[in-house]
């Protein structure tokens, strides 16, 4: 007897829908799991991820909070310690700064500070990134800042598959896990292979193999980087594209393995260059693989400005496929 087609055929869906399915499945699977955040229930989520879920699962499991970021993130930490498995949604990374105290001073420290008596099995999801002309208080990519903090695990699902499957292992992780969803990905469609029932939250993945240069990216930048790789291919340059997936802890073996093969690397990061995640990756490559490089390490990052409103300025501030391709080209063909 052959399996029904529906269980094997890939399903096309948006990234948003994949996030939503992940939340629904996690809540249905475990009575300790619930989601709370601003406008997640009645409004349906500021990026519509949880639309309809409160009706389906009840407002105890999809809980609206007042505008009290430090308060409800801290409550999530307390509830996690007390035995629940909360998923806290913060509308965007810019607003997570109001909860930075609880995330950095409590969530990230309690297991160590208590000598291992307590763990904080908390998941915090939030949107990140620019591209929607939302200006300087809604557009930043501050995930690199969180990747600086010991005690946290930082995930950046870029594909529909990761959006669908990274949540469950994040909930099972005994430590606080931050999940960053890039705003430009929510409407993006992708294939979900029903035979894949889970993913890890440990490794980076090679999304496109190539021999000439390694392009390291994550989140919203993955697709601009793949676009850049396509541009390079036309010129006969084969770029290997790595999707970091996990910003902390970094999967250095995958990055170094690729760089040792291609001997050239460009790191793409929507965060600002100074003191960034890209700086950390560059430093580690220099520490571990300096003598195997044929060219200097290059980076394509956001320009060092608060993201402006005007479309042409915003575009100029953010990394673009053409810039990524141009940077890789100079490495391969020489400046």
């Amino acid at each position: 007897m052959s399996a029904p087609a529906s269980t094997t055929a890939a399903v096309r869906m948006t990234y948003r829908e994949a996030c939503k399915q992940a939340i629904r499945a996690a809540i249905l699977a475990d009575p300790r799991v619930f989601l709370m955040g601003e406008d997640v229930a009645r409004y349906g989520g500021c990026y519509a991820v949880t639309k309809g879920l409160a009706t389906e699962l009840g407002e105890e499991r999809i809980r609206d909070t007042p505008l009290s970021e430090n308060g409800f993130v801290g409550a999530g930490i307390g509830a996690a310690i007390a035995g629940l498995r909360p998923i806290v949604e913060i509308m965007t990374v810019n607003f997570s700064l109001l909860a930075l105290d609880q995330i950095v001073n409590s969530a990230a420290t309690i297991s160590h500070m208590s000598g291992g008596q307590f763990a904080v099995p908390l998941v915090i999801r939030m949107a990140t990134g620019g591209g929607l002309q939302l200006a300087a208080q809604h557009s930043h990519s501050l995930e690199g800042l969180y990747a600086h903090i010991p005690g946290l695990r930082v995930l950046t699902p870029a594909t529909v598959e990761d959006a669908r499957h990274m949540l469950q292992p994040a909930i099972e992780d005994p430590n606080p896990v931050l999940i960053f969803e890039h705003v430009m990905l929510y409407n993006r469609e992708g294939e979900l292979d029903p035979s894949v029932t889970g993913v890890d939250i440990v490794s980076a993945k090679i999304r496109r193999p190539g021999r000439d240069v390694t392009l390291v990216a994550y989140g919203g930048m993955l697709f601009k980087t793949l676009e850049a790789a396509a541009l390079l291919q036309v010129e006969g340059i084969e770029a290997e594209v790595i999707d970091l997936r996990v910003l902390r802890p970094l999967d250095m073996p995958t990055i170094l393995g690729s760089v040792r093969r291609t001997r050239r690397v460009v790191i793409v990061d929507e965060g600002w260059r100074s003191g960034s995640l890209s700086a950390e990756i560059a430093a580690r490559i220099a520490e571990e693989a300096f003598f195997e490089l044929d060219a200097p390490i290059r980076r394509v990052c956001s320009r060092e400005v608060p993201i402006p409103y005007a479309a042409h300025l915003e575009k100029a501030a953010l990394p673009q496929a053409a810039t990524i391709a141009a940077t890789a080209r100079t490495l391969v063909k020489g400046g």
């Binding site: 200006a135 300087a136 402006p308 409103y309 300025l313």
Partner: peptide, 8 residues
């Protein structure tokens, strides 16, 4: 100068 927009 168009840097802020409606919100700023």
């Amino acid at each position: 100068r168009g840097r802020g927009g409606s919100m700023h």
